[in-house]
Nucleic acid binder design. Sequence first.
DNA 1: CTGGAAATAT
DNA 2: GATATTTCCA
Length: 292
Amino acid sequence: MREDESNWFSKWEEQLPSPDELMPLSQTLITPHLAIAFDITNNPVINTNTNIVPTPQVHHNLQAPPQLPPPLQSPNSGEFDSSELGGGGAVAGDEPARTLKRPRLVWTPQLHKRFVDAVAHLGIKNAVPKTIMTLMSVDGLTRENVASHLQKYRLYLKRMQGLSGSGGGSHASSGDAATDHLFASSPVPAHFLHQGRPNSEHFMPFVPVTALQQQQMVAVAGHPQYRHVGHFGSPSNGQFEHPFMARQPHQQQQQVHRMGTPVQNSLPSSYIDDLESANARKVLTLFPTGND
DNA sequence: CTGGAAATAT
DNA sequence: GATATTTCCA
């Protein structure tokens, strides 16, 4: 049977176990010096690349600095040109830069993880588009983007809750099941699932901000041309770049098992937040923070 | 501004 | 055709 479309997922699974980690959202939450005090300024963990599309990348432009720079401080001052998040990214060649038209924003697992993390840190209480967007600090991300994604995310959570109670099956009409994949990539904070507890306080088990990586990836959908624009290494704010380290060939099993059972959420453990980049269909561009 | 639905693009 | 994302409306 045709596995034309299915094959993308296959690859995706295999590449899921990426050494990529997440980035600390604390940046915005914690003050620079506070972060230093906590020593969370730089994560000594390993992080690695970021992009990676199964597609044959023709160019590898990256200046990849030696490693990740000091995160703290410097709130993104804004420098980075931010090429055109909307411009289609182009760079290289052709493609008129449409400055007014934002290309379709592709929510890549990593980006989504950031989104979930942000929501987790904020709590359903403040999990509003604006706050989330601010917390995410992803360049190019707009409130609208977050709002619409949030909507989808809520539906996903709802669908999940509904499933937990009744067994069922798997009837996903359409549009729901598919979304699950993307959402399944990111761990859903336990408290997310339905906070119907009138007497319960809302506490946040804090998200394992342990190994986080500092890099934002925005994927822009382009035509048959995928160009990943990595850019900006803002020297000033030493934000981040994509350090190319060796990726550990291990742990390759994450994947989404069936979560039909009650979420066992492994709180005490670190989440497996490594994801792969988008598949060959979009461009992965690292953008510096600074939207807003 | 937030939430939801519809429309459009890929 | 289906899905994702965007845009408009309440």
